[in-house]
């Protein structure tokens, strides 16, 4: 499963970074970035981060 963040939507709340620190981080400008873009399909903590994002900036794609 591939994970992406839309930088135009992200406002740097960091809920994803708190939920899954090995997949998301914040860059120097405080926007979320994906540090591990291929994750196990259906990984529960990643899906929780997707729905926890206040700006729905995170997407997952099944390849």
């Amino acid at each position: 499963m591939r994970v992406t963040v839309d930088p135009g939507r992200c406002d740097g709340y960091g809920n994803c970074v708190m939920t899954v620190p090995d997949v998301f981080d914040l860059d120097d400008e405080g926007r979320a970035v994906v540090v591990e873009d291929e994750v196990e399909p259906g990984r529960a903590d990643v899906l929780r981060a997707v729905v926890a994002c206040p700006y729905t900036a995170i997407s997952t794609h099944e390849d």
Partner: peptide, 24 residues
């Protein structure tokens, strides 16, 4: 339950600013 957006932290521009601290 499969993860899905619940509204306990609010929604939109007033979404809880302390949500990461609250969850931790």
């Amino acid at each position: 339950r499969p993860p899905k957006r619940q509204l306990g932290f609010g929604e939109g521009i007033h979404f809880c600013v302390g949500a990461p601290l609250a969850r931790l």
